[in-house]
Write a protein that binds this DNA or RNA. Structure first.
Length: 423
RNA sequence: GGAGAAAUGGCAGAGUGGUCGAAUGCGGCAGUCUUGAAAACUGUUGAGGGUCACACCUCCGGGGGUUCGAAUCCCUCUUUCUCCGCCA
């Protein structure tokens, strides 16, 4: 969430920049400022009451010690009123604080100045394109047909044992998945990201920390008996490593990578665009997460883009990069670039990576800070990106690398798969 | 799953109702000494709110309670450790 202090100091700027997201936040912002003033005024009243009460208690103690029981009891009689007052102030203060927090949760991150206006994904700006779209043979198939033809992904079997959106990978398909995971992790660790294996369920506090809760509750699978959530992305457990931490400047940069399955309920999304691997309830992803000094976060962001580019280049997949417009930007991000691979057989672009800088928006929820040179606690910046999401990369490979003889495995993956052709 | 013990500042560890935001040691930082370093010595060193700055307030695993007053007593939750059971 945004810092109240920041909102107070930059009221007009915040409203102006939130307009890029097509929202008029002026009323929300106004309420925040009023509530914060009320909150602080109550805090002062409470503090003063408590101060008086503390003072009396000390005097009572002193009187008891010196044997002046009468004086002590006389003072005791005075404390009741103060106690009542502080109780009332405290309740009011809690109400205000809760109301303020609830409001702050409703305000999305302020977009970076470079974020273009726009309403939907159609307004995203293509800023980069690389790779040649292959010319496929006449019988080219979409990946779900190829998956069936070569018996490498079984959607029906997944539906039988679990439900729609939970595919079973078989034989060379399973091996190719494992190869991609290993390859991505190797690329990431070579680039300086530290590898982690993390729990696939998180508690409520972690959900709040990265912003899945309270708003997107319905998008996560919830295990009621133990009140845990299946992670929708490794971003959640990894970023929450740093919840309530105070780092040193020397700790930067912090670069993490983790492979996890990702679970998403994706309620209400059906139709042609979710066919096959395009949208799943469970999929695999290798994620990169960075915690950075605010001065360095955009440089780190560029570095992440280059890193993802390098991987796609090695896989020889045609891709483009989009700068998301205000309307398509996720709630917590200040700037997001999406990577899309061109699916030749489907004749459409598939999103395979999303790289975002959250600036200090997540850090404020997480209370993730560092000590600056003056010894002050300052919020750090967090960033993350997919490097990469498996299903659509797999779809891209299957569709773009198909030949009449079979699927030709990209060269860099062959050491991982142990085969160069699926036929 | 059953029985018991515990949770205090970066770490270790005192503190069982008032003068405790908290002894002491280690670590960190600054200084003295030194050509420099080490050692020694001196000082300093948790977080949040609040203020122009002070003052002041809150925080001793989380939440609630008793009391004029709680790190200290009570309830509850969580976590850790030991023993038993089960188990990949």
């Amino acid at each position: 969430m945004l810092q109240v202090q920041f909102i107070r100091d930059n009221k007009e700027e915040v409203i102006k920049r939130l307009k890029v997201r097509n929202i008029d936040a002026s009323s929300l912002i106004g309420q925040v400022i009023v509530l914060d003033e009320e909150r602080r005024s109550l805090q002062t009243k409470l503090d003063n009451t408590l101060a008086e009460s503390n003072k009396l208690s000390k005097e009572i103690g002193a009187h008891f010690k010196s044997g002046a029981i009468d004086k002590a009891n006389a003072l005791k009689a005075q404390t009741g009123e103060l106690k009542e007052a502080s109780k009332t102030y405290n309740e009011q203060l809690n109400e205000k604080t809760e109301a303020l927090t609830a409001l702050l949760y409703q305000i999305p991150n302020v977009p970076h100045p470079s974020v273009p206006d726009g309403k939907s994904d159609e307004d995203n700006e293509e800023i980069y394109k690389e790779g040649d779209v292959p010319t496929l043979h006449g019988d080219a198939l979409p990946h779900w047909e190829l998956a069936k033809k070569y018996d490498i992904i079984d959607f029906d079997l997944g539906a039988k044992i679990t439900g729609a959106g939970f595919p079973v990978y078989k034989g060379k398909g399973a091996r190719l998945q494992r190869a991609l995971i290993a390859y991505f992790l190797d690329k990431n660790t070579q680039a300086g990201y530290k590898e982690y294996q993390v729990p696939h369920m998180v508690n409520e506090a972690s959900g709040y920390g990265t912003g899945q809760l309270p708003d997107k509750e319905g998008q996560m699978y919830h295990v009621g008996a133990d009140d845990l959530y299946l992670i929708p992305t490794a971003e959640v457990p990894v970023t929450n490593f740093f919840r309530d931490e105070i780092l040193n400047e020397a700790d930067f940069p912090i670069c993490c990578t983790a492979y996890t399955p990702c679970f998403r309920r994706e309620a209400g999304s059906y139709g042609a665009h979710v066919r096959g691997l395009n949208r799943l309830h469970q999929f695999d992803k290798v994620e990169i997460v960075r915690v950075e000094h605010p001065d360095n976060s955009y440089k780190a962001f560029d570095g992440m883009l280059e890193h993802v580019k390098e991987i796609l280049r090695e896989l020889k997949l045609p891709f483009r990069i989009l700068r998301l417009c205000g309307g398509d930007l996720t709630f917590t991000a200040a700037l997001t670039f999406d990577f899309e691979v061109y699916s030749t057989a489907q004749e459409r672009w598939l999103e395979i990576s999303s790289v975002s800088n959250f600036e200090n928006y997540q850090a404020n929820r997480l209370k993730l800070r560092y000590k600056d040179e003056n010894g002050r606690s300052v919020l750090a910046h967090t960033l993350n990106g997919s490097s990469l999401a498996l299903p659509r990369v797999l779809a891209g490979i299957l569709e773009n690398c198909q030949t009449p003889e079979g699927i030709k495995i990209p060269e860099v993956l062959v050491p991982y798969t142990g085969f160069d052709m699926i036929s």
